[in-house]
Amino acid sequence: MNLIELQKKLTTAARLQKPDDRVPYAFEKRIMALIADGAVASTRLLWARGLWRAAVSCVAVAMVCGTVALFTPDSHDGGNDLSQDFENTLLASADVDDSPLP
């Protein structure tokens, strides 16, 4: 069999085939809907990414603060606790006011 001739014949047959250019009904609407979905999805994705990053940063800051608090040596002297210090500071001005005038 003449293969070169067969190849030529079949290639010519393919050339004679006019490609069908039918487009499904409302195809452009479908594409536009997909594009709109994609845009919404990408906005959501941006927000989600940002929020996750913020959450991770917050956890990291909280962990650093916790570690610092845990390993900082106790600086209280004389058995005064925080509530006592707070009360002293708050009432300091009152103590000053109560002092007798010269």
């Binding site: 250019d21 039918r22 487009v23 536009m32």
Partner: peptide, 22 residues
Amino acid sequence: DSASFEPLVAKYSPRVFATARR
């Protein structure tokens, strides 16, 4: 203005489909 993309899709889809069918 992504809506301006629609006329392009409508105009060139026949060519895209004809090529894809090959």
